[in-house]
């Protein structure tokens, strides 16, 4: 049985299309006077946020409420989580409360996968460490499809801190499932070792890629990447000036874009660093739409996971496991066969 949305890779082409089509219909709800559907009446959705993210949490909250689910916001700050309660204890608490779905944001990669083993309901990954953010990728795909009418065959360029970006990982996976051609552009220090095996092309040269792009997605570059607490030796690039000169989307570069190309940003932006304000606020920009589309897409995800007897999308159940770790399949003799 399918149960969770942990990674964009959990979605087949059919699944992803179903989410986008459903979101399309649900988008109308946001335009009505009565912005509410009875669909998830009596279901409980927990927003479990170990990391601050007003934007994502609010979006999920609104999505759940528009479907009439009961919503509990469980933030790490001010709860027992900050007093050293483990993720597992928190999971058991939520389990006892009878939650049907947990939307989790966590600073450690893989925390949603861990949580999925400890609760019976669905787990929706709302961003885990530097791993994935599948609903962001879905809303980005939704935005592209709305603006450009299709996804298959689109040239999508993702620019910036790919190494640390969960948005990039989820987008690469989802967009390749949907048939787009993704190019990653970043300084080599901000691309992970192993990126050559991803379903995407890689370039270090933004100017060469821009004219061929239908979509340019700018990733946030955190200033910490220039070295935590002033530790210059671990910096990924020499200075923000040099970064924005080589990889920032400024007005001059935006002119190189095709007429109908769009500019996206998952937010929050560092204006003047990776994107010029004129570009962020320009007609190509979908940044505000992305926020609105986020609600529709998250409604679709919640509906498809919780709206019926069993989820219609998502990852296979990893098994409910409160005591010993799940046994591995025994290896074939004499060969290492990681399960």
């Amino acid at each position: 049985m399918r149960r969770h949305l942990l990674s964009a890779a959990d979605l087949s082409l059919e699944d992803a299309t179903l989410v986008l089509d459903t979101a399309e219909e649900l988008a109308q709800v946001s335009e009505r006077t009565v912005k509410k559907l009875p669909t998830l009446r009596g279901r409980t959705v927990v927003n479990l946020f170990f990391e601050d993210s007003t934007r994502t949490r609010t979006s999920f909250e609104l999505a759940a409420k528009r479907l009439s689910a009961d919503v509990i916001n469980f933030s790490a700050k001010g709860s027992s989580v900050s007093k050293g309660e483990t993720l597992k204890d928190t999971a058991l608490t939520l389990e006892a409360m009878g939650s049907d779905a947990v939307v989790i944001r966590h600073s450690w990669s893989g925390a949603p996968a861990n949580l999925a083993r400890w609760i019976r309901g669905s787990v929706v990954n709302a961003g885990d460490g530097t791993h994935e953010h599948p609903t962001q990728a879905l809303l980005d795909a939704f935005t592209m499809r709305k603006r450009l009418g299709r996804i298959e065959g689109l040239a999508v360029t993702i620019v910036g801190d790919v190494l640390h970006s969960r948005v990039a990982r989820s987008n690469v996976l989802l967009l390749s499932t949907l048939g787009a051609d993704v190019t990653l552009v970043a300084p080599p220090t901000l691309l992970p070792v192993g990126v050559e095996t991803w379903p995407a092309s890689v370039s270090y040269d933004l100017d060469a890629v821009l004219p061929k792009s239908d979509v340019v997605m700018m990733l946030r570059v955190q200033r910490e990447r220039m070295g935590p607490s002033g530790e210059k030796a671990t910096a990924y690039f020499p200075s923000s000036r040099e970064y924005s000169r080589r990889y920032g989307l400024d007005v001059r570069r935006a002119l190189a874009l095709a007429d109908d190309a769009i500019v996206m940003h998952p937010g929050p932006m560092v204006r003047g660093m990776e994107i010029a304000p004129e570009v962020a606020d320009g007609v190509r920009s979908t940044i505000v739409e992305q926020v609105a589309n986020g609600v529709s897409v998250r409604m679709a995800v919640l509906y498809l996971l919780l709206g019926g007897a069993a989820p219609a999308i998502g990852a296979p159940d990893v098994g409910f496991d409160l005591a010993p770790p799940a046994p591995l399949t025994p290896p074939a003799q004499g060969r290492a066969t990681p399960a």
Binding site: L18, D21, E25, P38, T39, L304, G307, G308, A309
Partner: peptide
């Protein structure tokens, strides 16, 4: 007018694709 999201038997089956409203 698609009525899927208002059905009283949603919980009996997998969630269905929506039709146009």
């Amino acid at each position: 007018l698609d009525i899927t999201l208002y059905r009283d038997d949603l919980r009996l089956k997998s969630p269905r694709a929506l039709e146009a409203t």
